[in-house]
Simulated assay, not measured.
Amino acid sequence: MLTQGRKTAPAGAVVVTGSSGRVGSALAAAFDAAGWTVRGLDRMPGRWTSTVADLRDDRARRAALRSADVLIHAAALHAPHVGRLSDAEFRAVNVDATAALVEDAARLGVGPILYISSTSVYGHALVPAGQAVWVDERLTPLPRDIYDETKLAAEDLVASCGVPAVTLRIARCFPEPLPVRARHLLHRAVDVTDVAAAGVLAVTYSAVTGTFNVSGPHPFRREDCRALHRDAAAVLAERAPDVVEGFRDRGWAVPGRLDRVYDSTAAANAFGYSPVRGIRHLLRSAADGWTA
């Protein structure tokens, strides 16, 4: 049930930073399909990138924002860059460039702002202590590395920029071998198509602001947490016996223990987020011969 916001028509032009990346390009495609005019900004060329430039290029950044209605900020250095790039570079890209971007957006009257963050910001809070961690927005983030620190700092910048803003903390959504992907989709991953749908919904519903987890769909409940840490296979057999059968049909191990479950209920209530490409979708796709 929606508890916030009212659905509105597309407003016009949307700027997507990181538009050549996996998440940014999916968001751009979804906004285009929903009737928006998309302008993409990225350091690398891509299908949806109209401006090839570094986000720290003041002129390019402001030109992209001019006459735009909405800003989608997906550009960032990510977890795989940790240890390969300096902490100073992380701060320059993930924090300083975000500060300049939202300042420009506020000055030019661009809004709302949609910021793409990560469930990684929960960091050390994801470590179980006798039971699986139920990860909703009430869980206090405990950053564990420079990536988590800078994404959380950027969240704070976006939230305090003076423009209506939504932050989506998205779950794991990069390509993996099918058995690994299947295991993660049980409790801590999301399909990038569902991420893109969430982005469109978050902007389309007026008056929605705040921070929301985007994951799932997952078959578990909060009361399952202790049992999931002890015998996840038994819980899964109760909650989703068809999924257990699908794993076994493919020779994939059913996990015996799960450390966390991501909860997207707040996003469902606020703007109607309803993911569809979860574990059952993957199992059907695998049965049809999909391998990527």
Rank of each mutant, 00 (worst) to 15 (best):
A97R: 01
M1I: 06
V135R: 08
A34F: 07
V208M: 14
V166E: 01
T51W: 01
R230T: 15
V14T: 06
L108C: 09
V14I: 14
I146M: 05
V261E: 06
S50I: 03
T204N: 07
G278N: 11
L142S: 11
V195G: 05
Q131M: 05
R183K: 14
L114Y: 09
S25C: 09
D156N: 15
L186K: 00
R183P: 00
G24V: 10
A63H: 07
F247H: 04
T49H: 13
R181L: 12
P177H: 05
T119V: 14
V15G: 04
G216F: 08
A75S: 08
R230I: 05
A92E: 12
A286Y: 10
Y262T: 09
S160H: 14
C161D: 06
G18K: 04
T167R: 05
V190S: 07
I116Y: 00
V203I: 15
V200T: 04
A106R: 15
T150G: 04
D148Y: 01
T119M: 05
D288M: 14
A266E: 13
L55P: 01
V82E: 00
G46A: 12
V14K: 01
G130C: 12
A33S: 10
V158E: 11
P217G: 11
H81L: 00
T140H: 07
S50C: 10
S285H: 13
E238L: 15
L178P: 02
V214C: 10
P179I: 09
G40S: 11
I170Y: 06
Q4E: 14
A165W: 03
K151G: 12
L185G: 03
E89P: 01
T49A: 15
D136R: 04
N94L: 06
A227N: 03
R84V: 11
Y273P: 10
T265Y: 02
A196S: 08
D224V: 04
Y205S: 09
F31K: 11
A237I: 04
R6P: 00
W252L: 09
D148S: 08
G109N: 07
A30C: 06
T49N: 12
R43A: 11
V15H: 03
R39M: 12
A292W: 11
G35S: 09
P112D: 02
F212E: 05
A34E: 13
